[in-house]
Design a protein around this nucleic acid. Structure first.
Lengths: 128, 128
DNA sequence: CGGTATCCTGACTGATACTG
DNA sequence: CAGTATCAGTCAGGATACCG
């Protein structure tokens, strides 16, 4: 699972922040990425459409997150120079491969989140 | 497709921040959680041992993250009232179930991160 | 329509000092 | 050893205004 990268370190090489799992979490662990990927899953969408679909996202964060996804090659941005301009966002092939790990997370969440909630309540009760 | 009258607002907001995937990312998407889980994977460890194993973690963040994991029921904390005191941290059953989703992420990372890096470089080159 | 640019606030994080 | 407490810096992210 969590391993260090293949730098030829000493055998005592600890758990470094550049392990693969942490690096991908840096990419998708932010507030909006997985919601955008989810919103694009069924096909392309325009900027305004995405903004409407994703509850609470600001224009700035939507732009910023889409740009990051485009830079990573996970989302393709296509500009149609009509008047007014139309911009479509689509998941790339690579972007679609994110589905599996995301679904694994979702499954864990669905099966364990109620236990986690219960544990939190018990912990908080004991603390008081 | 979800269509609703203007009176019903329940089905009209598809991608909410409280979706299961986002909620679990809120828990494990931070800087240290997955590294701690990884460091505990092979068995229990004491506080100092963890601190030595996880590169760059501060005392404060290690404590804070371990407390959160304990509160969530993913890590068990056991105090042995010796002198000096000894404290052992162990993954719970629930904590161990995190392995599957984390491994899915790791696998994605390993197979796609070089493509992502290449895409970033191309993107940045085009931007200049 | 689909953005940029700018300012600002609160959360996350680290450094440091102290303690049972 | 295994923390707690306090302070300070960084930065993600929101609000707002403007633009091609």
């Amino acid at each position: 699972m969590v391993t260090t990268s293949s730098e030829s370190q000493l055998p005592s090489s600890p758990y470094r922040a550049d392990c693969p799992t942490r690096r991908i979490l840096d990419r998708i662990g932010d507030r909006w990425t997985v919601l955008i990927v989810g919103a694009l899953w069924d096909g392309s969408a325009r900027f305004s459409e995405l903004r409407r679909r994703i509850e609470g996202v600001s224009q700035k964060m939507l732009t910023q997150t889409l740009r990051a996804l485009e830079r990573d090659g996970l989302v393709q941005r296509t500009v149609y120079p009509e008047v007014p301009v139309r911009v479509e966002y689509t998941l790339t092939e690579a972007g679609r491969t994110l589905r599996e790990p995301l679904r694994a997370l979702e499954e864990w969440s669905i099966t364990h989140l109620s236990d986690v909630s219960a544990s939190q309540k018990a912990y908080d009760r004991a603390a008081s």
